[in-house]
Nucleic acid binder design. Structure first.
Lengths: 115, 115
DNA sequence: CTCATTGTACGAGAGTCATCGTAGTTTGAC
DNA sequence: GTCAAACTACGATGACTCTCGTACAATGAG
């Protein structure tokens, strides 16, 4: 099969378990904020290897785990790849408008600073 | 004089030096988020001693400094007191709507969880 | 089966963070 | 000058974070 989902399961917090403080902490790291911005600019999901981050693979794994455990992204295995998607709906229900404002703020700062 | 401002000066980042990551990090701590919520609910400024935080005075000082250095609050001495105010205008110019959304998210979570 | 791709687990190191206690400074009131 | 109130500075401690390297596991292609 071409896009089978593995039995390997990953722990995600339920929607009601997502804490604002954890989300803000997850997004306060430049690398993770960049990942989230890339995810937000894409329809669907992206594999971990899609991102060309300035850190090693182990560190990349770490950052994606922080995002997942904070409830910002949802991860699923597809073959050898691990696909990542924003939990837009959950976040929007819990914290209306928050993600969009943060993304907008990041874009504004990027334009200002030149990142 | 009754409300003189001391010569003791405190370092604040200029508006253009405020970084989104630092603001998010500053707000990702429960105690600091609570302080900011209290400040947001008040017209004008509040002294450090106004807050009844579950930590010692030294730790309180630490948290207010983090908030100040991130550009979230502005601090001035008035007598023996140190007054704290949100940098609403600066934050609104840099990151439109961000602070309000975070405050709203915190309020929603507080209502949900019961904080 | 073999192999390359993709990501994980583990341990370690350097750094930062939240917290405290004690001692000290600054201010205003008396 | 004396004193209390408000806050700071400093050092310490334990926890957590970001980073890495090496070794390992799961998958799909050949």
């Amino acid at each position: 099969m071409s896009t089978a989902t593995s039995k390997r399961e990953l722990d995600h917090p339920a929607r009601d378990e997502i804490r604002l403080e954890s989300v803000l902490h997850a997004l306060s790291d430049p690398i993770r904020l960049r990942v989230v911005r890339d995810l937000a600019g894409t329809e669907g999901e992206l594999s971990c290897s899609y991102f060309d981050l300035p850190v090693t693979k182990s560190t990349t794994t770490h950052h994606f785990r922080v995002l997942r455990e904070a409830g910002v992204i949802q991860q699923t295995y597809r073959g050898t790849a691990k696909m990542n998607g924003l939990r837009r709906t959950d976040l929007e229900e819990l914290f209306p408008g928050l993600l969009d404002r943060i993304l907008e703020a990041a874009a504004l700062q990027g334009a200002r600073v030149g990142g």
